[in-house]
Structure formats: C-alpha cells, structure tokens
Amino acid sequence: MQPRHTSDDTRRAREFEAYVAGAGGRLLHTATLLTAEAHGDNPRARRLLTLALARTYACWDRLHGEDPYDHTRQHLATRFARGAWHHHGGLLRSRSRPAGPLAALTPQERLVLVIRLYEGVDGEQTAALLGLPVERVRTVFNRAMANVLRPAPRPAPPVGGVKAVPS
C-alpha cells in the first residue's frame, strides 16, 4: 500500500498535466501576444508562461474551486507587467525589438488589448487585475485599438528612382 501523500501527489500531478494539456496552447499564444514575439520564436513568452504555470502548480491544492486558467492568466499578466515595469525604470516599454503582430504597441497597450480582446475580460475586471483605474484601462484600450486598426503610415518609396533630398 502506498503512503497517502504519494497518491495525492500523483493525482495532483495528473490533474495539473491535464490542465496544461488543455490550456497550455492558448496560454502560450497569450504570452506570445504579450511579448510580441514571432509565433515560432518566442523564448520570452515560453519563460513567462513557465513561471506562471509554476505559480499555479504551487497553489494547485489551494485553488478550492477557483478556475486555474484565470489564476494562471492573472500571474501571466502581472508577471509581464512587473517585468516590463522593473526593467525599464518605471516605464512600461519593451526591452527588445518585438517582431509579432502587436509589435507597434507599447507593452501596456499590448497587455490591455490582449486581456480585453483575446482573453475576453471586461474593462472593470482588467482594471482590477492590473491595479489601474477603469478609465485608464479604457483609454489605453482605445489607443491600442486605434494603433492596430490605423497604423502609422510608412514613408512612400521614391518615385522613378529619384531619391528625396533632405531639407
């Protein structure tokens, strides 16, 4: 007969593995959108997700009916925000040049946009999750949407091989 804690550990590990098998892909996509890395080349997103999943696993027995996906998403978002904040002296800017579809957005804009649109969390819950006023979340979301829907125009290529003369 196995000791009780061994069977509990085995059950816990199986439950967590099943959770990761079901939710891991979506959570990795969320992390990739946050870091604005390319889909196939996303080491920061993978590290971010690994740390969030480790935190969820550590709390697994204490979730008591709480949705583990919400728990992991919360840690993913707060770790991303904290990392962007601490690495840049209080400015929420990206350390490296992202290359993904949301690369033109600031990390804060990406965070709000991904949580609101991709994850489907409403403005009040997003504000509570990020510790921001609801109006600030609304402003950041609207600015992010404007930047995604109407990106800054690129300079026109020279016409007929004539190069523009700097003024």
Rank of each mutant, 00 (worst) to 15 (best):
H86Y: 09
F80C: 02
L117M: 09
Y69I: 02
L53F: 03
P107K: 05
I115D: 02
A54I: 04
T50H: 09
M145I: 08
H75N: 12
A38T: 14
R55T: 08
L48D: 00
Q74M: 10
I115W: 01
V137S: 01
P133W: 03
N147T: 10
S94F: 02
D41N: 07
R62W: 08
A58N: 09
W60E: 06
P151Y: 12
G120M: 06
A103M: 09
L129D: 01
H71T: 10
P151T: 06
A38I: 06
R136M: 11
D61R: 13
S96F: 10
A54P: 03
L48T: 01
Y118P: 00
E66L: 13
G83T: 09
R97M: 10
V159A: 13
L49R: 06
E37I: 03
L117W: 13
A127I: 05
Q108G: 03
L91P: 01
E135R: 15
E135S: 15
V114G: 01
A144F: 05
G83S: 12
R150S: 11
R73T: 08
L102V: 07
A144S: 02
H75V: 00
V162I: 15
L63Q: 10
L49T: 02
E124Y: 03
V121R: 11
N42E: 03
V162W: 12
R110C: 05
E135D: 14
G83W: 02
R93H: 13
P43N: 04
R73W: 05
V112L: 05
F80E: 04
V159I: 14
Y69L: 12
L53N: 03
L113C: 09
L51K: 07
A152D: 08
V114H: 01
M145C: 09
L111S: 00
Y69N: 05
G123R: 14
T106F: 03
R55S: 08
E135I: 14
Q74S: 13
A103K: 11
G131L: 13
P101D: 10
V112G: 01
A84W: 01
H71I: 02
H87G: 15
H87F: 05
R79T: 13
V121F: 03
A81D: 07
H39T: 08
P98L: 04
V137T: 08
H75K: 02
P68L: 03
A52T: 00
L49P: 01
L49F: 05
P153V: 10
R154S: 12
V114P: 02
Y69P: 00
A127F: 09
G131F: 06
G131P: 07
L102P: 00
L92F: 13
H64A: 13
A127R: 09
R44L: 11
C59R: 15
R97P: 06
A84F: 00
E37A: 03
I115V: 14
A77Y: 07
R138V: 11
K163L: 15
L51C: 08
M145F: 12
Q108D: 10
G65D: 06
A104C: 07
V114R: 05
R143M: 04
G89N: 13
L129N: 04
